[in-house]
Design a protein around this nucleic acid. Sequence first.
DNA 1: ATGGCGGCTCGCAGCCGA
Length: 254
Amino acid sequence: MKLATWNVNSLKVRLPQLLEWLAAQNPDVVCLQETKLEDKAFPCAELEAVGYRSAFAGQKTYNGVAILSRLPLGDIAIGNPGFADAQQRLIAATVGGVRVVCGYFPNGQSVGSDKYAYKLKWLDALTAWLREELARFPRLALLGDYNIAPEARDVHDPKAWEGQVLFSEAERAAFRSLLELGLKDAFRLFEQPDKTFTWWDYRMMAFRRNMGLRIDHILLSDELAGNCMACSVDKEPRKAERPSDHAPVIAELK
DNA sequence: ATGGCGGCTCGCAGCCGA
């Protein structure tokens, strides 16, 4: 089973690129973030036409998450029952015996801001909820835009980023708390090229200069990690005209 | 990264992302 995550930064704008990418990569399950679409505008028919079912939770302008799947989606759940949130950032579904959780983690704006406090609370609540989910679903994958670079090697210039939002100690500690639940970073199960990132600012020719961060991740429960054959970042879509600022991450399970 | 782009909106300027 091929699982992927991609922050598309507007599904309306990126739909043609998504369709092209689905044809090229043929993933079984795709988690999308920042769809920025109300549910009534979700392109179900276009995706159905190329073989994908959809589960989605959107809103106008901001946020919005979706899971696409070639196989039926069961037990669709939106949000974290332990955290009332007006922002559509979490959706889960069961596909082929795997509990797939798709998350668009808060950005946090800047360390010390209200949005940063919300991010840390959101992360705490996520960890508490996943502890229960893992007990229910030992085969669980958490895919999405975490908005956290876990380690210095995930940052193009760790000195400049130290203590900044996306790479602050509290955020990295929250990421480690997810690992302490027994989840494994699929990307780090394998040898990887140095300076592999998943997000590059649109400005400053950041992509061309590879000034990026690795903030999109696939975490796998122990049971799934043992079946993981490969994990990589697909930089191709970031080279397109009018790209998303994020690249997809793909993991292959036996 | 002082910003520098790109997406969004009861748009023509300002908010937000990361």
